[in-house]
């Protein structure tokens, strides 16, 4: 399975561990990632705040490059960063919906000798590709070191599921990362804030606002006794990891929950060496959590509630 690969700026530096682990696990899962030649920044959440057409032109240059190089990659472009994933899919979506916008953006692109036809590139998040193209069964078959004993809080954040220009999971209650973690042998905590916001760029704009959002997430994961938080986005990882000490200082709390990329945990379960997976770059030390792996017995399905007392509880599946 071949894909165009758009790592995005974060994966070059602050989320280098995400890039390293993605590149390490991809071949083992039968994924070939071909980096788009000379890609540029997607503008994050900043460019759209300033000016519309340049913001779209900036994103569309990447789509145009991906279109040029699509023969090698089957027209699919994979982004591991949720913000890049959103921006790329958003530009494609609105260029298709609003022809006048597409016309202006292509006018701008033509100044660089480029052109993009909306709809010609399918933008995918790396998680989508792994759970849906590779599939849970194929991953399960490859697990050589199950993550038994590790309690993980799958953290989706926002932009991978909302607003859903390339939807592959529920915007409020996604489960794909939960299922993936279970397949790897980990115990999954079903905590309510798994799609709440990490604060995004608010750490730079309004620190108290951002720290409060981060605190809520850490508290909720801690309340559910998670050993680690698993992320699918470099911004989420940075905010929860690098700002954890700030949160503790600001609120007088004492959280120390390591925040890992889902590709790192896939790598561990596939028995790839920690160095290759970029471990050691996190602010909150992951070693105590990783040391738990193999200590517990694999979870034996959900606990059955006693029905003898009280009123019956509805189940999540509609058929009950």
């Amino acid at each position: 399975m071949r894909y165009g690969y758009y790592p995005g700026c974060s994966l070059e530096r602050n989320a280098i561990a995400y890039h390293q682990s993605a590149v390490a696990v991809a071949p083992q899962l039968g994924i070939e990632l071909n980096e788009i030649d000379d890609w540029n920044c997607c503008g994050a959440t900043e460019y759209s705040s300033i000016d519309l057409i340049p913001a779209y032109a900036l994103i569309a240059r990447n789509l145009a490059l991906a279109e040029q190089q699509q023969d090698e990659n089957g027209g699919q472009l994979v982004a591991p960063c949720s913000a890049c994933f959103l921006n790329l899919s958003k530009a494609d979506h609105y260029m298709a919906e609003a022809p006048d916008l597409a016309e202006k953006v292509n006018d701008a692109l033509s100044a660089g000798g480029l052109h993009y036809d909306p709809g010609s590139i399918q933008v995918r998040h790396l998680l989508d590709v792994i759970v849906n193209d590779v599939g849970y069964d194929a991953i399960k078959a490859k697990v050589s070191k199950p993550l038994s004993g590790l309690r993980v809080a799958p953290y989706y954040g926002c932009l991978i599921v909302r607003p859903g220009y390339q939807a592959f999971d529920d915007p409020e209650y996604p489960t794909s990362l939960d299922k993936l973690m279970r397949v790897l042998g980990a115990e999954v905590v079903d905590y309510p804030l798994k799609t709440h916001c990490c604060g995004g760029h608010m750490t730079q704009i309004s620190r108290p606002t951002a720290l409060e959002l981060i605190r809520r997430l850490l508290k909720n994961a801690a309340d559910y006794e998670a050993d680690a938080i698993v992320t699918v986005c470099p911004m989420c990882q940075l905010n929860l990891d690098a700002f954890q000490a700030d949160v503790n200082r600001f609120f007088g709390t004492d959280f120390h929950i390591p925040v890992l990329y889902f590709t790192q945990l896939i790598g561990v379960a596939l028995n790839i060496s920690p160095v290759e997976l970029g471990f050691g770059k996190e602010f909150v030390d992951a070693r105590p959590a990783l040391d738990k792996i193999g200590t517990g017995s694999p979870p034996t399905g959900r606990r059955r509630r006693s029905r003898e007392k009280g009123l019956p509880m509805p189940t999540m599946s509609e058929e009950g």
């Binding site: 529920d170 409020e172 209650y173 079903d190 309510p192 509880m313 509805p314 189940t315 999540m316 509609e318």
Partner: peptide, 18 residues
């Protein structure tokens, strides 16, 4: 079926009733 609106918690939060 309010399970279709997961943010209202029916099916997950015991004391949410239809």
């Amino acid at each position: 079926d309010p399970r279709r609106i997961p943010q209202y918690g029916y099916g997950r939060l015991a004391n949410v009733f239809t």
